[in-house]
Structure formats: structure tokens, C-alpha cells
Amino acid sequence: MMQSQIVSRPRYRDLAAEDTAGAHLLIVEGDTLAAGQMAALATAFAVVAERLQTWLVSAPATALAPGRVRRLHTVEEARTALEHIEDGFGIADRLYLQGTEPFMWSLATAAGRAGLSPTQIRMQHAGSLKRRVWCTHCHQTTENVTTNIATCAGCARALLVRDHFSRRLGAFMGVMVDAEVPGEVPQREEVFR
């Protein structure tokens, strides 16, 4: 499900530090950390370790990380911190994100508002494949969707979760699944575990 015929679906790569002269900010969704992952990140970021800051979001207190470490409790807290980052961002700065898609795109859109260009952001997917779904009918978003068909949190319609993805909204498109024949709803299956 991470690969798709639909090319608006982002592709993610393993994070690797880019040796630019600016500041490097790595934000990791802590509860997605598998064993050995942080060690791999430490290796990947060794080259910029002196200019690296790592934010651990909702991570266990014992988790270690490379660079100067800051601990945050929630993704909302991290968003706010990003939007209020002192002195803003420069063109040599890089933001690296690791976590679920809703987590990464919440932060990427916040960073965009803070002035970071998409070319300065790198992402590596980790953890659940759950999705944020945007309803084409009522324009509300539904969080933590793991099934092919989701009930819209805004209008309660049964939405087919498509692979078409909007970076601006950080969300997948949801379209009413039984608009043509009301009640004709396929079996719900957990496909984005």
C-alpha cells in the first residue's frame, strides 16, 4: 500500500543527512521507534551531528537520540514549536521527519507556513499506515483511518479512501462509496494497518 499507480501518492525514502551548512532538525514520532532504528538514525546523521537538533515526540522517557534532544508530548505541540521557531529557516536548513503519514504531513504543512520550501524537507515513513482522509463532499478530515472505507467524521457518509493525495491538506481523498446505489457498500477491510 506504500506503492501506488497513483503518482500523487508520495514516496518516502530512508533518511540520510545532507551535509549542508545550515541547521538540521530531525523530528521523530517516538512511539513508532522500532528496536535499532535510533542507532541507524545516529549513524545516518553523524556527519551533521554538531548542527543537529532532534525532537522526540511522544517517545518513551528512556529513548536516546543523536544531536541536541528536545522532548515533546504531542504532534500539536511540535507543530506549534515549528511555527514559532526562532529566527525562522534559512535556505541551507533541512527538516527530516520520521513517523506515520498524518504525523509527517502535519509537521510538513506547519513547516511550509513557517517558510520552509518542500525541497528542504525529507521524510521517512515509520509505524502504522493509517491515513488522514479528506471528504470531497463536506471537506472535513477524518483521522486515523485504517480501513478501505471510512465513516466521515463530518457528514457520516461512507467514504471510499482513494490513493489520491494532497500535500497541502496532508490527506487522502475520500469519496462517497454508495452515491450511485444507496446502501451498496462493499465490505470494510483493514488495509492501512
Binding site: 497513483i6 503518482v7 500523487s8 501518492r9 482513494r162 490513493d163 489520491h164 493525495f165 494532497s166 500535500r167 497541502r168
Partner: peptide, 11 residues
């Protein structure tokens, strides 16, 4: 809105 050429033709 805001998508690039490849993204909006994605589907």
C-alpha cells in the same frame, strides 16, 4: 489547488 502537474493528473 496548489498541486503540481504530475500530482493533479495522479489518478
Amino acid at each position: 489547488v496548489g498541486m503540481n502537474f504530475m500530482e493533479w493528473h495522479g489518478p
